[in-house]
Each structure stands twice: as structure tokens, then as C-alpha cells.
Amino acid sequence: MTDMSFSPYKGVGSILFDMKPAEVELAVGKPSSTSTSGRGEFEEHRGDITVRSDSETNGVVEISFGPAAV
């Protein structure tokens, strides 16, 4: 992911809140791994970028970055 433009309440780069996992994959490629958080959220990992989707709506609710992502 090269575009790291933060848009408050919209998303980061081409990852937008409420996107479904398939839409995120089309926008930024396949995740290197997936998991489920302790709260039941679906997590997609791409290097130091984690995208979390709500367990009920399946839409993106959080985008987090590790130190190597920026």
C-alpha cells in the first residue's frame, strides 16, 4: 500500500471504512494472513498493516499500522 493519506471518518489510502474483505483485497491485494480478534472481528494482515472487519456487518471498522508500515 503506497498511498497512506488519512481521511478522518473515511479511511486510509484506498481502504475505506465499511468496505467488505473482498473489496479490500481488490483495492490492496491479498492478505499475508488472517485471524479473528478476541472480540470476534475478522482481521487481515498485510505486513505491518492490519484491517479489522466487524463481526456483524463484515465492514472495515479499524485500520492499524505497525512501525514498519510508515
Rank of each mutant, 00 (worst) to 15 (best):
M1A: 14
M1W: 10
T2G: 08
T2W: 06
D3M: 03
M4G: 03
M4T: 08
S5I: 02
S5T: 11
S7F: 04
P8E: 02
P8A: 04
P8Q: 04
Y9C: 04
K10C: 04
K10F: 04
G11N: 09
G11D: 06
G11L: 11
V12Y: 01
V12E: 00
V12R: 01
G13Y: 00
G13I: 00
G13K: 00
G13H: 01
S14V: 08
S14N: 14
S14E: 14
I15D: 00
I15Y: 01
F17H: 08
F17E: 03
F17D: 02
D18P: 03
M19L: 15
M19W: 13
M19C: 15
M19F: 13
K20S: 14
K20Y: 12
K20V: 13
P21I: 09
V24K: 00
V24L: 05
E25H: 10
E25K: 14
E25L: 08
L26R: 15
L26P: 04
L26M: 15
A27D: 13
A27Y: 08
V28R: 05
V28Y: 05
G29L: 07
K30Q: 15
K30L: 15
P31T: 10
P31D: 07
P31F: 04
P31N: 08
P31V: 05
S32A: 14
S32I: 12
S33F: 02
S33H: 04
S33P: 00
S33E: 05
S33I: 02
T34R: 12
S35F: 04
S37L: 07
S37P: 12
G38I: 11
R39Y: 11
R39T: 12
G40D: 10
E41G: 06
F42G: 03
E43M: 12
E43Y: 03
E44V: 06
E44K: 14
E44I: 05
E44Y: 08
H45I: 08
H45M: 11
R46Y: 15
G47Y: 02
G47T: 02
I49T: 10
I49V: 14
T50N: 10
T50R: 11
T50C: 10
V51C: 04
V51T: 12
V51A: 04
S53E: 03
D54M: 04
S55E: 06
E56N: 09
T57V: 14
N58L: 14
G59M: 11
G59Y: 09
V60D: 03
V60P: 02
V61D: 10
E62A: 13
I63H: 03
I63N: 02
S64P: 08
F65T: 07
F65R: 10
G66D: 06
G66V: 05
P67R: 05
P67N: 07
A68P: 00
A68W: 02
A69V: 09
